[in-house]
Design a protein around this nucleic acid. Structure first.
Lengths: 136, 136
DNA sequence: CCGAATCCGAAAGGATACTG
DNA sequence: CAGTATCCTTTCGGATTCGG
């Protein structure tokens, strides 16, 4: 890396983006935190999350399973039973996610205030005085 | 909080979700990392990110500005000039985000392998043996 | 009980053209 | 240069129905 970054979006960055997208996903993090307490069954989670559709729960779990964050164990009983559990990888994800969550909580007030200010000023108004420096 | 969590989605959690959504946003984190090196102008960033539309750049910057992560300074010159810069809040966000990024890079191989395994097995096949425990 | 499949409205996001 | 406005395609995601 002798060269300064000129264009963003290098190879590795793209892979990282996918992980960030997972974290940004509305339900994935919620599920991970839920499973932190131990294995859960499908409908059990559906009841706990309260607002998720069974479609989204399925898709979210599939995504997490595909990434190796969650393991799926089905018991061929009648009625069927399926347990979802955090893998070691899934558990390891909790640490950086919780760090982010703590940042969010710590700065929650500041963000809300900034939003209120922004909205009060009507989005993006004119500039401050600033003594007209030469642009070129 | 003497009570254990029964239903997820308590008040504070929802606010945190919004922050996570920002982080999960495809462009926001990229912009924040770009601005870590100092203030940038609009088209300058557009060239650097390489793949972003000017519409998305505008929306992303507006969102970051609204949250108080980025400050916008317009110089009323001709031609106009607008500088975007990370606020202290914006800078403070870099730390937990980079922690997440490092986790992503560290586990990139493991995730890719899990995905390959999952896809090779065709999504979500049958169960392991498991000696039929009683479900109820 | 655990899902897959289908349908359909809502929202995201790129391309383009136009303004100050 | 720094946006805004419009169009249009793609995706997301809830509701519902059916199968193992």
């Amino acid at each position: 890396m002798t060269e300064e970054q000129t264009h963003f979006h290098t190879e590795g960055c793209l892979a990282v983006s996918r992980v960030l997208a997972r974290v940004g996903d509305k339900w994935s993090v919620l599920i991970v935190m839920l499973l932190a307490g131990g294995p859960r069954r499908f409908n059990e989670m559906k009841r706990m999350v309260d607002g998720i559709s069974q479609r989204m729960l399925t898709l979210t779990l599939r995504g997490l399973e595909r990434d190796g964050l969650v393991s799926r164990t089905v018991f061929p009983t009648i009625p069927p039973r399926v347990d979802y559990e955090l893998t070691p990888l899934g558990h390891s994800l909790r640490e950086p996610v919780m760090a982010l969550g703590q940042w969010a909580q710590a700065n929650l007030a500041g963000i809300a205030e900034a939003q209120a200010d922004f909205d009060r000023r009507g989005g993006a108004p004119d500039a401050p005085p600033a003594q007209t420096p030469r642009p070129g």
